[in-house]
């Protein structure tokens, strides 16, 4: 990632020095030691001062654990469901029946790929309307059979394409919001990477929102925000700061409930403990929500949404 470049350059330099023959150049040993200290200092500085824009970059890291990694690790007996029964199957959305330590659930998630080939097939995790309609089909199954829903968010946004518009992208997202609003089963949402606007929100709210430390959730991408404000996408770092899109910001606004920590450099350097921690939080949330009767559950979900917003109210 861009902000890590000085760090990697120093690491390279150190590697080169280490490969030199100490017997020929005795002063190298001292230099190596000096550089190692510098490197440690720089590493601390790089990650301690990590800002919203750096977090957005980490959230987009190609090796960051994806929906399929969480599903493969945390669930067993996975039965993937394909297609919306109307148009086609959108690989940018995963819908599945799955089991988590004996508990049967419906899993939803945006699905990015790790390779270019995968990403092309999955449209880089940006769904078309049929993706949301598949998700809705799975939600209705969850309702009929009393299965909780676990949703993983990781999309730059719903796809802004010609066909997506022709097939009613806005209509699909709106219906999905409407369905999720009073789905009478527990809904646990985990922000694992990108939370790009309406395309994330369509499967992205419920009774509990768990955010990874470096996941973001935003009304608009920092790049597009910068385009609108300054006519240049290069000022995205600034825009990322303005938008208050980090996990910590979401806690402040009362939108997210809890944050799962990541290694200093991001979840991609050591995914297993992060995935395990997410699993723990999902289990705890499902345990707590499983006690609540459906009517109370949907009433509380409504009240939770109802309370979001900051405005002034005078006489009128």
């Amino acid at each position: 990632m861009e902000f890590e470049r000085p760090l990697f350059e120093l690491e390279d330099k150190l590697d080169q020095l280490k490969r030199m023959d100490v017997a020929v150049n005795p002063e190298i040993a001292a230099e190596v030691e000096d550089l190692e200290q510098q490197l440690e200092q720089l590493r601390k500085e790089t990650y301690e001062q990590i800002g919203p824009w750096e977090r957005v970059q980490i959230s987009r890291h190609p090796e960051r654990p994806k929906t399929q990694d969480y599903v493969a690790t945390l669930f067993t007996d996975v039965v993937e469901l394909h297609g919306d029964r109307l148009f086609g199957d959108d690989e940018a959305i995963l819908a599945a029946l799955a089991t988590m330590l004996g508990r049967r659930v419906v899993v939803l998630g945006h699905r990015k790929g790790k390779t270019t080939k995968e990403n092309v097939a999955r449209n880089f995790g940006s769904p078309h309307p049929e993706g949301y309609r598949k998700a809705m089909r799975a939600m209705r199954l969850a309702e009929r059979f009393g299965l909780p829903v676990v949703a993983f968010l990781d999309t730059a946004g719903a796809y802004p394409g010609i066909e997506a518009e022709q097939r009613g992208q806005a209509w699909a997202i709106a219906e999905s919001l409407s369905l999720l609003a009073d789905l009478p089963v527990p809904v646990v949402v985990v922000g694992i990477g990108e939370g790009g606007s309406g395309g994330a929100l369509a499967i992205g709210f419920g009774d509990r929102l768990i955010m990874l430390e470096n996941a973001y959730y935003s009304v608009i991408s920092p790049e597009m925000c910068a385009m609108i404000l300054h006519k240049e996408a290069s000022r995205a770092a600034e825009a990322a700061g303005c938008l208050r899109l980090t996990a910590a910001d979401l806690i402040d606004f009362g939108i997210a409930d809890e944050i799962v920590g990541e290694p200093l450099e991001g979840a991609h350097v050591d995914p297993e403990p992060v995935i395990a921690a997410v699993g723990e939080r999902i289990r705890a949330a499902l345990d707590a929500l499983g006690e609540v009767d459906p009517q109370t559950l949907t009433q509380k979900r409504y009240e939770r949404l109802r309370a979001i917003g900051v405005f002034e109210e005078g006489a009128g």
């Binding site: 709106a174 919001l177 409407s178 999720l180 609003a181 606007s197 309406g198 929100l201 709210f205 959730y217 935003s218 009304v219 938008l243 208050r244 899109l245 910001d249 979401l250 606004f253 939108i255 949404l305 109802r306 979001i308 917003g309 900051v310």
Partner: peptide, 12 residues
């Protein structure tokens, strides 16, 4: 920001 995005869910 996100307060606006969540108005979508609230109004829906």
């Amino acid at each position: 920001g996100m307060l606006s995005l969540m108005q979508m869910a609230k109004t829906a």
